[in-house]
Design a protein around this nucleic acid. Sequence first.
RNA 1: GAGGCCGUAGCUCAGCUGGUAGAGCAACAGACUUUUAAUCUGUUGGUCCUGGGUUCGAUCCCCAGCGGCCUCACCA
Length: 508
Amino acid sequence: MLSDHPQFKERHNRLEKWRLSGVDPFGQRCDGLWSTADARTLHTHETPHEGTQVAKVAGRIMLLRDIGKLIFITIQDSSGRLQIGLTKQVLAAEWEKAKLLELGDIAWFEGKVGHTNTGEVTIWATGFGLATKALLPLPDKFHGLTDTELRYRQRYLDLAANPEAMAVFQARSQIIAEIRAFLHHRKFLEVETPMMQSTPGGAAARPFLTHHNALDIDLYMRVSPELFLKRLLVGGMERVFEINRNFRNEGLDTRHNPEFTMLELYEAYSDLAGMMELTETLVATLAKRSAEKSKGLDGLVRLPYGERQIDYTAPFQRVAYGELFAKHVGVEMSDEAAVRRVAHGRGLANTENKDADVLRGELFEHLAEPTLKDFDRPVFVYDYPAGLCPLTRRKPGDPAIAERFELYVAGMELANAYTELNDPMVQYETFSSQLAGLAEDESMARMDQDFVTALCHGMPPAGGLGIGIDRLIMLLTNCTSIRDVVLFPLLRPVARPAADGCAPAPTA
RNA sequence: GAGGCCGUAGCUCAGCUGGUAGAGCAACAGACUUUUAAUCUGUUGGUCCUGGGUUCGAUCCCCAGCGGCCUCACCA
């Protein structure tokens, strides 16, 4: 069964009528089309009612007002909406077909761009045709689609019926294009590295497992491209970046989707400070462009996010990890005995056997990190406990501290950067030793011998940076759920067919 | 994993102390040559998420399940 929708049969009858009148209801190539936005520019103050210049447009029929011998149709394409006027007088022999058009159909129209008595820019159709017959109706023409589950499961309906949804994904595409342009301008090379890896490395996260039949080997979906991008530094690609998916087998919430898009980049001869400059410039530039688009608040780089406003004016705030730690945990981070005492007092599990840096991390996450959402500006947190960052260079003169920062915006981890570790002996050591108190899948202790070999050949000193693209889009488009910026977020599959889908959902 | 909220016509939503359901849009039939969510007349359309329970009687109360949203937990 194609569809059990109550209106399917009626629409299918309409399709047969198109066939009987000699029209292929699923159309063909259509040349010489204008976007509705461009067609609209053919209308000026001097344009007479009936119009002067001809345009041909195509789109989905969103509104239809049949007034007898006159029909007004509002079509929508990716540039917006435009009204079409069809009259029996002009279309004469075609009039029976015009009466067959209905909401949701995709059609083209040709005619002069004029306007109506009320001034609405209108193409007065001298010709038209069905491009594709819609056999199912669109959601409510005024309210759109509000059911969040249907919006995610049938995103095409969300895009067709909710202009705000379309705008978010158009913005997403533009922002990513701007990021690429920014990095190309800085002489970065875009690359693609394996998403299926036999040793999942570069991040402490649980991977998805898959299998290759011909080789009969298990492979992991990557949790990070890091170890491959660094191999490229060894090979002489001095500035590389990749914008692509990472896969982490974790829970889902408003900030996490199991597959998410990450910008990861490495710059030879740079370091943490270089990454901070790059991050700040990039994020502030993107925010400024978004602010200009949305409002034009001359110079002020301020964007709404949920109930609040975030000020992206550079320079961003900077605060040391240890400073936040002392303020919110109440003891100096370097005082291991005090750290253990507080951790024990806080009731953290297994405090005796855990590495002190693991305890520092847990205390920070519980007491300091939550306060980061109170900042109304982006804030760089820098100088992390070394034990938490095994792929990171130690701070000169202070081996307890790793050269790492995270950028927090509205309490979200947006970016993460390091002065990269390029000492193969230290790397070998950190791969070999698992931090006490960490489960294996939470640690980075997965030996990657080939990577160590690569480091032995010499990797230039470098800065590395990761930016969560989905979260960046959330901030720039004021979406508080990651599902609103990912076209097809992961949802639990439903066994029954989709509410008004054409075919039953697969059962396997 | 824990808690809160939600699931009613194709879509958007009402539904009183518990008495087997309504509106707008869409659809169908008709009128209409300047509408703007067109308007006007008439009509069709329901497994009230699913399964139990309480009750003379359940959309409503209770329990379990399914799905979604939010908060927390988890999370380089």
